[in-house]
Amino acid sequence: MSRNPERKYRVVTSFQRRIGNPLLKRLPIQTLLETTGRKSGLPRRTPVGGRLVGREFWFVSEYGGRSQYVRNIQADPRVRVRVRGRWYTGTAHVMPEDDARARLRTLPRFNSAAVRAMGAGLTTVRVDLTD
């Protein structure tokens, strides 16, 4: 991709917003993160790749605090996650102190490769599931 990180960010997020995410959200097996829009108050669903570990769901945000869903989490950490077709409620925690690159090695390989290739400012997110 580009050597210019700002251009890379604009290209990747534009593609995800217009093409990638709308297609992926329709797949019944796709893992989804549902946050509450910090301005609208409406549910916002974003495809993510992560792993359920006991009562926690872990994933890595490609753009950390620049990601809209991370900003939504910071405003209201109550979220829902759809894993293998089942919805769970929980509380999300943005974890900048966690080694996101090391965390990606423990998550699904295909998604992790895409996050490493496209992302800048990787940030780990943990969701503590309540049901």
Rank of each mutant, 00 (worst) to 15 (best):
L23H: 06
M118E: 08
Y69F: 14
V70A: 06
R80H: 03
R126P: 01
A100T: 02
A75P: 12
G37K: 03
R55Q: 13
V12S: 00
I29Q: 13
A113F: 14
I73N: 00
R51L: 14
V70R: 01
P43H: 13
V81G: 01
L122A: 00
T36K: 09
V127F: 03
L33C: 04
T13L: 01
S61C: 10
R82F: 07
T91I: 08
Q30D: 06
D99H: 09
I19L: 11
D76L: 08
D98K: 04
G121I: 03
D131G: 15
P47C: 05
L107A: 09
G20F: 07
E97T: 08
V11H: 00
E34Q: 15
F15K: 05
D99E: 10
Y9F: 15
E62K: 09
V12P: 00
T35E: 07
Y9A: 02
T123C: 14
N4I: 13
A92N: 08
R18Y: 11
H93N: 06
G20K: 06
T31N: 09
R7P: 01
L42H: 13
V125G: 02
S14W: 13
T13A: 01
R126G: 01
L107N: 07
R45P: 02
F110V: 15
V94N: 01
G121T: 03
T123K: 02
P96R: 00
E56A: 05
L104S: 02
A92H: 06
T124M: 02
T13P: 00
T13V: 06
K39T: 15
R7V: 08
V79Y: 07
V81N: 03
R17S: 08
K39G: 10
T89L: 09
G90I: 08
N4R: 10
W87N: 03
R44K: 14
P77G: 08
R82C: 09
V81H: 03
I19W: 09
V60P: 02
Y88M: 06
R10A: 11
L33M: 03
R71L: 13
T130C: 09
Q16Y: 10
T46C: 05
R38E: 14
K25E: 15
F15D: 04
L107Q: 03
W58Y: 10
G41N: 14
L23R: 12
V83R: 06
G85S: 10
L52N: 06
S14T: 14
P77K: 07
